[in-house]
């Protein structure tokens, strides 16, 4: 990736925390490049270090080692005052919103502008515009306590956008919201990305969030990047164990078959072929049946994907014939771990 297209570059990021009885290293050298204008996802299970990693981007946590670049500027080398200046070009939203409870929605959105010295009248004007953008034009004078979770997150988004940032960092921004509200907030983030060209970094533990809005994703596990690539790639063929865990988990009762049933395979259908009765034809042509354990469809970057977990027959010859049939039709087939 050419330097001028890179918005955020993390190189060799390590983070150690001092603890009782020694040090704990939570990030073991992370290298990531995030392009201008993309929505980049960082996914991992809780405790994987993803929240620490996003805090290292705006240096709320100072990495123990490594460098952070924002649009070519090395943040880790800046003195405090200049770092504060740079932070104004990075907005951040949080799982628990973190709004000022004693200020109205409008005053919350004005807050970052107050800090950076924008004249009051101008700040107010822009804050009203931003609240309109996030669909809260009628709640300007409400206090956070009077707003729902989704509305609070919208205020937080408006506030994060107030200083016209180049980057928006989202730390589990939808994890405290119900599915409908989550969809609304994600749609808003996508809209902001498209309309304003802001680079967005999404931290989450939910694959569905990544699939919904991200272009690329890094899977973080045990303080390291396990896998990184386009969301489509990772969804179709997750290479690592953690990747498979995250992808399969989505919408399937994984516990019911992983390690319990033999000959289980995950099949992924892409786009148009989801509409063809490939599976039915296979069963007729190969003269055998499969057991469907779970199945769903996903939209990833405007493409439809179907994924299914199938149990194939015991008989090896028949099984291989069926799998061969599917692969020939362009379906991704992958065996699910059986212990």
């Amino acid at each position: 990736m050419a330097e001028q297209n890179t918005m955020i570059r993390l190189s060799g990021i390590k983070k150690r925390f001092r603890q009782k009885g020694g040090e704990l290293e939570v990030l073991h050298g992370i290298d990531v490049e995030i392009a201008k204008g993309e929505i980049f996802g960082i996914i991992g299970l809780s405790g994987a270090g993803k929240s620490t990693l996003v805090r290292c981007i705006n240096l709320l946590e100072r990495p123990t080692a490594g460098k952070v670049y924002l649009d070519g500027v090395e943040l880790t080398a800046l003195p405090e005052r200049e770092l504060r200046q740079q932070r104004r070009s990075m907005g951040m939203i949080f799982q628990q919103f973190h709004l000022l409870m004693q200020r109205t929605a409008l005053e919350n959105v004005c807050f970052p502008m107050e800090i950076s010295g924008v004249p009051k009248a101008k700040a107010k004007e822009r804050a009203i515009e931003l609240l309109e953008l996030v669909g809260l034009a009628d709640r300007t004078d409400s206090y956070p306590a009077q707003l729902s979770g989704g509305q609070k997150q919208r205020v937080a988004i408006a506030r994060a956008l107030a200083t016209e940032p180049k980057v928006l960092l989202c730390d589990e921004a939808t994890s405290a919201l119900d599915p409908n509200t989550t969809a609304g907030v994600l749609a808003l983030l996508k809209d902001i990305n498209e309309r304003l060209g802001i680079t967005i970094v999404v931290i989450t533990h939910e694959m569905s969030v990544i699939q919904e809005i991200c272009n690329r994703v890094a899977i973080i596990d045990g303080g390291k990047i396990a896998e990184m690539g386009s969301v489509e790639e990772i969804f179709r063929t997750p290479k690592t164990k953690i990747g498979q865990e995250l992808v399969y988990h989505e919408g399937s009762n994984r516990e019911a078959y992983v390690g319990k049933l033999p000959h289980c395979y995950r099949v992924v259908f892409k786009g148009g072929i989801s509409n063809e009765p490939i599976l039915g034809r296979m069963m007729i042509d190969c003269n055998g049946v499969v057991n469907i354990l779970s199945g769903n469809t996903r939209h990833i970057e405007e493409q439809v994907y179907g994924q299914m977990i199938l149990q194939f027959p015991e008989e090896k010859e028949l099984r291989e014939k069926m799998i061969g049939y599917l692969i020939e039709k362009g379906v991704v087939v992958e065996e699910v771990e059986y212990v």
């Binding site: 705006n58 504060r84 104004r88 951040m92 709004l99 000022l100 409870m101 807050f111 800090i115």
Partner: peptide, 25 residues
């Protein structure tokens, strides 16, 4: 603590955090 962190992420100085976050909140 998160509210203070949010203010820091916006580039607020310690004095601004004291006067505009800690005391009013």
């Amino acid at each position: 603590k998160g509210v203070i962190e949010a203010a820091q992420s916006m580039g607020a100085s310690p004095l601004q955090i004291m006067l505009k976050v800690l005391l009013p909140e």
